[in-house]
């Protein structure tokens, strides 16, 4: 439980400190209540609305997690394809980078118009944002695999696919985990943008309605929920990543030096 003492407690203390600061700030004269509601009011509104927020939250979680899983798998597959076939990499890498320059705000409405208001267009938006960090870091890690080990396998007569399976892929696990952590910190953001652009359910919808009706207290409550969700998703992915790393023994490379 050293994790609890070392990492979680300081984080909780810092957040509580921020909330207290916020509570003091709204008590200053001249800060209008409709712009910056007091933390206790945000809490009260959020708690009163918990059933509704919970329903929206569940929709967002489903989209974010599905998109994350899909994006990570897609990212690894893309990295493998680009590693195995160099011309493909030269041809498609600029396109992949360009796909990241297009903001989801532009992309989401097009997908929604094409695929309807179901979950899939939104999952796709999240996937598109999530696959890229995994593909890039996995690709770099696979291409820059330990030269000695690649040479060894080659000298044994191993084919490219065997070298990939036995050396490049296991060696790339730290890179894949690193990329997945970056992805995990993006997925909630993408999911909410996608919902904002057109949906009937999800925290994005709740945010949009709160904003349209100038309910800053509701808006803040939803923002709080989103912040907590983002952190939890990141922690979960980091935890899974650590477990994979421990299993993969790639962590051993760092321990031996």
């Amino acid at each position: 439980m050293r994790v609890l003492l070392g990492q979680i407690l300081p984080a909780v203390a810092a957040v509580l400190g921020l909330i207290v600061l916020w509570g003091l700030l709204v008590r200053l004269p001249g800060v209008p209540d409709y712009l910056l509601p007091a933390p206790e009011r945000v809490w009260a509104v959020g708690w009163a609305d918990r059933d509704l927020i919970g329903r929206h939250l569940w929709a967002t979680v489903r989209i974010a997690v599905s998109g994350f899983v899909l994006g990570s798998v897609l990212g690894i597959l893309v990295a493998i394809a680009l590693t195995l076939w160099r011309p493909l990499r030269a041809a498609t890498e600029p396109i992949l980078i360009a796909s990241q320059a297009i903001p989801p705000v532009i992309f989401a409405p097009i997908l929604i118009a094409a695929m309807g208001f179901g979950a899939w267009p939104k999952i796709l938006v999240v996937t598109l944002g999530a696959f890229f960090p995994v593909a890039i870091s996995a690709g770099i890690a696979m291409r820059e695999a330990d030269r000695t080990l690649v040479d060894l396998l080659t000298s044994m007569g191993a084919r490219r696919l065997t070298v990939l399976r036995r050396v490049r892929l296991p060696g790339a696990v730290p890179g894949i985990v690193g990329g997945a952590k970056i992805s995990a910190s993006y997925v909630v953001f993408s999911a909410i943008i996608a919902e904002w652009m057109g949906s009937s359910v999800g925290l994005g919808v709740y945010l949009q309605r709160s904003q349209a009706s100038y309910r800053m207290d509701q808006l803040f409550a939803a923002v709080g929920v989103i912040a907590v969700l983002g952190v939890l998703l990141f922690w979960a992915s980091a935890l899974i990543g650590d477990l994979v790393l421990a299993r993969n023994r790639a962590i051993a490379a760092g321990r031996s030096t």
Partner: peptide
């Protein structure tokens, strides 16, 4: 490649394989 049993200068063990699996790799 693959025509001779080549023993490189570095021990070149795969960090994710145990002794036995490394020994039988070639």
């Amino acid at each position: 490649p693959g025509g001779v049993a080549y023993h490189p200068q570095q021990d070149a063990l795969l960090p994710w394989l145990t002794t036995l699996d490394n020994a039988t790799l070639g």
